[in-house]
Design a protein around this nucleic acid. Structure first.
Lengths: 144, 144
DNA sequence: CATGAAGTTTACGTTAACGTAAAGTGCGAT
DNA sequence: ATCGCACTTTACGTTAACGTAAACTTCATG
């Protein structure tokens, strides 16, 4: 009914199959420097056409995963470990278990952080009350 | 009744009035390097007897305050600002208000962090569930 | 053909709070 | 006199994830 949803590959290009570094930078709102850095760290390995990097869907997905991992608190090294496992054995049970372990660790660390923050918030409130009290004293003294 | 609680200054020394850098390091469980670093940053200014640093109660209190500030998420620079204000005007209302502002900022940041952590914890749980589901699939397949 | 946008490499800079190594001084005790 | 320990200074190293600058190439377009 709507041409926008036609699946005919001759008439509608739903997905690009290659991307420039700039394309990805714009799409994911990161700098090209960042993307090259990820390559440096062995997280992405785009093809080359001469000097120029050619990114394919696989690379795009990886970038998305890296960014997602970051949001979840994974270091680049951790994400790379996961990628490496996937590369060595795409359907590894081991890999999934490693991921689960990693997730558990992160969750434990975050729960600890959460507790710490709560404690510090209370301490800050205590100090705040102390300040207000002292401030009131000084203000009333100067008002006398 | 107990000599340990006698207040006669001739017989019982309740408080030291000077400390070596090692004394303080031990008491607060920091390295001497740390204490010298604080001095470098202008947070403490002990006297000298030749080369040797002589710390007095004032310095000890400051160190305690620095460490407390750290626990509360204050940077050394922020703590220094507070100290500077105190040094210029020991009973400054302004100084208390600065402190209150700082505290409010920290609290706001922490509350934000708290929310972020909660979100990430949920996201992690979601990914975790995804992993478990996939793992179950693979396991059952290999069991068949 | 010149220009400008986008791409490339190399490599040092950033932030915070120290760690660590190197090399020397001071002093009480043996 | 010589240990040995505590103390001193100076200055580079650490961590993570890029930022930034310099200097160059490639390509499409006017």
């Amino acid at each position: 009914m709507n041409d926008e949803f036609a699946m005919n590959p001759e008439r509608v290009r739903r997905t690009q199959d290659t991307f420039s570094i700039g394309d990805l930078a714009r799409e994911f709102d990161v700098t090209t420097r960042t993307i090259r850095f990820y390559e440096d760290q062995g997280l992405i390995t785009p093809e080359r056409r001469g000097q120029t990097r050619i990114y394919k869907q696989k690379d795009r997905v990886r970038l998305k995963l890296i960014l997602r991992g970051k949001r979840l608190g994974f270091t680049l090294a951790e994400t790379r470990t996961l990628f490496d496992m996937y590369d060595r054995d795409g359907s590894s049970v081991n890999q999934l278990q490693t991921m689960l372990t990693l997730i558990e660790d992160k969750k434990a660390a975050l729960r600890q952080q959460l507790e710490d923050i709560k404690v510090v918030l209370h301490e800050l409130s205590a100090v705040e009350n102390g300040c207000r009290t002292e401030l009131a004293t000084k203000t009333s003294r100067s008002a006398n």
